[in-house]
């Protein structure tokens, strides 16, 4: 399998995602520069990594969507290609219109870096196949603008279509309001598009993909992708 990790000026989790794809799950990966107008080779999955693309000075992810490579990413996604956006990558996906809603300032108005528990709400996606339904995983967050918001109508649709993939929970999987440290709608930590090929999540699975870093359950976001692709993709769209 071949992954592309997009590098925007200001991306800072690009090397981390690359490391996990290459060294931890043993797949092929390329860095792709944001100025590239086309992909020079065929990719199986595109990763939009975390960081502060363009400094996030205007609004998180809002400038990155104008990078030349984003046209290709959008085309790739529209053709059903797998796109994973983590943290700033999630913010870019919402700005680019590939995912509904938006990410706004944390409710405490401060950057928060810590471990969170996530409940896997839907394990039937290409990104969560290797988890069990309702499994609780411990995954770090590190963001200042990670509160997921959307209108009521969108939220209802997300729920109805099982598009909410990860929610902040307790270690036992209870999605209490206290776990919702950043003030996201409905404890949302990650969502998928309706078609099921574009996932955005604020927590960083690449930061918990090796036991030396605390736990390695995050790597299954990446292994799921490989499992899915080996299975030939989802049918019956």
């Amino acid at each position: 399998m071949k992954f592309a990790v997009i590098v925007f000026p200001g991306s800072n989790c690009d090397a981390d995602c690359y490391h996990v794809v290459k060294e931890v799950i043993g797949q092929d990966a390329d860095y792709v520069w944001h100025q590239d107008e086309t992909f020079k080779t065929q990719y199986d999955c595109i990763v939009l990594p975390g960081g502060f693309s363009y400094g996030d000075y205007l609004r998180t992810g809002s400038i990155a969507k104008f990078s030349p490579i984003m046209n290709e990413v959008i085309k790739f996604a529209n053709q059903g290609g797998l796109v994973l956006g983590i943290c700033n990558g999630f913010q870019i996906l919402t700005e680019a219109g590939l995912l509904p809603g938006a990410l706004v300032r944390n409710k405490g108005l401060k950057f928060v870096c810590k471990d969170t528990f996530l409940k896997v709400e839907n394990n039937e996606t290409p990104f969560t196949l290797d988890y069990t339904q309702d499994q609780v995983i411990q995954v770090p967050v590190a963001h200042g603008e990670g509160a997921y918001v959307c209108d009521e109508n969108t939220l209802e649709k997300l729920k109805a279509n099982k598009q909410i993939v990860f929610r902040y929970s307790t270690s036992a999987g209870e999605t209490f309001p206290e776990c919702n440290f950043n003030g996201s709608s409905d404890n949302i930590a990650g969502i998928i598009n309706k078609k099921g090929n574009v996932l955005g999540m604020m927590p960083h699975p690449e930061r918990c993909a090796e036991t030396i870093l605390g736990n390695d359950l995050g790597k299954h976001v990446f292994t799921s992708i490989v499992s899915w692709l080996k299975g030939g993709g989802r049918n019956g769209e």
Partner: peptide
């Protein structure tokens, strides 16, 4: 330290 990203780079053991 919760306000600092102490994990980026995935080296923090």
């Amino acid at each position: 330290y919760e306000q600092y990203d102490y994990m980026v780079g995935i080296n923090t053991v």
